[in-house]
Structure formats: C-alpha cells, structure tokens
Amino acid sequence: MESSHPGGLTATMRNFSRNRMGMVGLAMLLLAIALAVFAPVIAPYDPAKPPRATIMDIYLPPSAEHPFGTDDAGQDVLTNFLYGARVSLMVGFFASFIAVAIGGVMGLSAGFIGGRTDNILMRFTDIMLVIPDLPLAVVIVALTKPSLWVIVLVIGLLGWTSTARLIRSQTLSVKQRRFVTRARAVGAGNFYIIRRHILPLVLPLLVVNTVLVISLAILNESTLSFLGLGDPTAPSWGQMLNFAFTRGAMSAGGWWALLAPGIGIVWVVLACTLIGQGLEQVLNPRLASHNLSSTKQMILRPPRTQSQHAPQAPDQA
C-alpha cells in the first residue's frame, strides 16, 4: 500500500535513504556530530585543564600520547579538534537556522502576496545579495566584542538571500497551479492555502537548501575565525587554523596542527554537499538520461534477412 506521495516530505526522505551518495554524506555528517557530542568522552585531555607545557612540548609530531600531535602551545591537537567540532557545528546549525527562517518567510511572503510586497522584499534581497557578505561580516564582528553568538547572528542575518530567492520562485510556481485556484474557488483563505497547499510543496526544497546553508555557515565561521575574529573562549576549527598559521606551524614543520582542522572543515562541507546532491536527485528524478547513443540496447529484435512482407500480402498464405 502506498502511504505517501512521491513529491511529499516523507516519501522524499524514504527515497533519499536509497540514494547511496546521499547516505554516505549523511553518515559523514552523523560521525562529525557524534564526535562533537561525545568529545568529553573521547578526548584524551581536558581543554580547560591543559597539561603543563614546556618549550619541549611545542609542535610534537603525532605519537601514542598525542595522536594528532601538539600545537603551538603544546596542547593536544586531537582534544582541540574534537572540542572545535562542537563550536563549528553549533555555529553552522544555529546560523543556518536563522538564515533559513528569515529566507523562508521572506520568500514565501514575496511569492505568495506578490505585487508591491514582492517588489519591496525582492529589491531588499537584491541589495543584500550585492553587498559582499564577508567584508561586512568582518566589519560587524570587528566592531562588536567577539562572541560566539554575535558570529552566529551575523552569519545568519547575512546568509538568507539565496534561500529567499529559491523559496520565492518555488512559491510562485506552486501558487499558479490549478489546485490553488480551485481552493480559492472553494472559498479558502490565504492562511489556509499557504498551510495546506503551498508549504507542503515548498518544504522538500527548503530542506535541501538548509543542508547547503549549513555548510556555507560553517565555512563562513571558519573564515572569520581564521581572520582572527573568532570567540577566543570557544575555539573552533577556523581558530585552530588561525593559531597554527600565525604562530609558525609551517616554519616549525608542524603540519599536523593545520591538517586536523582543515580535514574537519572539508569533511563536514563535503558531507553537506553530498546530502544536498542526493536530495536533489531524489526530488528531480528527471536527471535520468536518454539512451539515444546505446542503439544496441534499444533494438533487441532477432536479426532479419530481407523480409519484404507488406501488410496487404499476408506472409502465411
């Protein structure tokens, strides 16, 4: 028995579970989340009580004692990496939540209400779109006291534009479909139509978008931290990179201090991209190809020799 429609959210998720690429991405992301959540259990040291470090402990290569080596302060890179995952992921999730919420509401209202509201909202979106995000974020964060929540807020408030555009266009196309006119003809109000007819068809797209916004937010946070604008009380992967880069990891040959956070960032971004692409394939089954080039496959009939029978002349006379 079919329990849901292929276009809906539940069915999308079920089909997604059959998408290999998407599932690999999901596994990668879940692993990263698990490492972050269980950091206190896994981490060999407590970052709040670092072991007393001497000059001899700086940039130690990976060993049994320090699997990922030590950094410029003689601290364990693995420990910092695990705790940094917490910060990076948290910023990614919260900032993308803000961005998607703003973008979703903007896109839905612009697309659904249309007319002047659409015009005003979209011109505003355009302005936000042309302002370069990063320099603005740098200025804002530099002007405030560096704190994790400021960074979350800035990334969220600057990252909603693509969501708004996407959701607007989807809303517009759903709004023009006949079943919306039918609902109107029945006498349904705007709120009912949005809730019952528009939102269910916009939702799968919003989910795809959210995944991509998360990776973007993590990248942005890393960039800000790498530029030295991170919250010093909550070291993220970007900040680890910053410390390693500015405090001579390369000249001291301590490549491991750069490698761990770098891989972490790439890992999470790749995971999100894979999930996003997997979801897109599920939502867009028409990406399937045509078999024009594979003639041998298309024609499977037994080979024929000059069989020249026309319908008018029955061949089994």
């Binding site: 045509h290 003639t295 298309m298 009939r301």
Partner: peptide, 14 residues
C-alpha cells in the same frame, strides 16, 4: 523514430 525512452526495447519487427 527510434526515440524510445531508456526502458524501451524494440524486440521484433522491421
């Protein structure tokens, strides 16, 4: 036209 979609197969005829 020999423009069948991917699952289409001409299994017999001329």
């Amino acid at each position: 036209m020999r423009l069948l979609p991917p699952a289409g197969r001409i299994v017999n005829g001329s």
